[in-house]
Amino acid sequence: MNQEHPILRVEGIHKTLGEQLVLDDISLSVNKGEVKILIGPSGSGKSTLLQCLNFLHTPDRGRLWLEGREFKASGKRDLCSLRQQVGMIFQDFNLFDHLTALENVRIALVKVKKLPASQANRRAKEELARVGLADKAALYPAQLSGGQKQRVSMARALAMDPKILLLDEPTSALDPELIGEVLAVIRFLASTGMTMIMATHQIAFSATMAHEFLFMEKGRIVERGSPSVLLAAGATTRTMAFCAKINELSGDLGTAKNQTP
């Protein structure tokens, strides 16, 4: 990996929502092909941080570079150009309810990338096939299961050829039996070298592919390191304590199985 030229770098991000300081001096950088996992209790600022990385939230302070070029949230052209290159996956999918699966994937290709209709169509079909939903192209979001909706939303983001993908708890709104199909797509993306930052509670799963865990608390990154170090047997890290708590609550089952090598 090229350590000198990170894909995405932010420095000193601050964000206040209402009275509360949600992000307190966050800096991070992601190299090509890296997978970084944001973990931490709810309300720790994971979602807000992800939304500051594509300026869905405007940071109060701080700077952002994509492939070495600085982007400013105040410039409209900067804003749209950054968002075209940074894909985002939402916790509750946010598919466009009035469009079919195919149209959902196609709309930004036509409106934003200005591809001709036939080319956009072909690309949208390819992306749907890639997430295993070629046969659902004509269905509307209301006719899809949660897992299928999330896969369509991944196809929609991937069709834009993003340089980096931000995933905001992509499986948190899913029934347990539907989580697997979404995780499979994420694992596939990681294997193809997609650069990703993901907020998640699927710790055992993400430990298998993460280059770094970032543990957030009260708007700060309080701990960072590779999962093998943070989650080593006997480690006394905050991350470990947090995971132990999650495992206790979820009955230890899936995680214990995955953690034994």
């Binding site: 749209c80 968002r83 075209q84 894909g87 509750d92 009035h98 709309i107 930004a108 934003v112």
Partner: peptide, 29 residues
């Protein structure tokens, strides 16, 4: 829902594109 707007913006749509292509077709129904 705000999520529909967020999704459109996250794809790089302008405000006018978002209103015309995403919000109005749903709102008019």
């Amino acid at each position: 829902r705000q999520g529909q707007i967020n999704a459109a913006q996250a794809l790089g749509m302008t405000k006018v594109q978002t209103i015309i292509s995403v919000i109005l077709p749903q709102a008019l129904r």
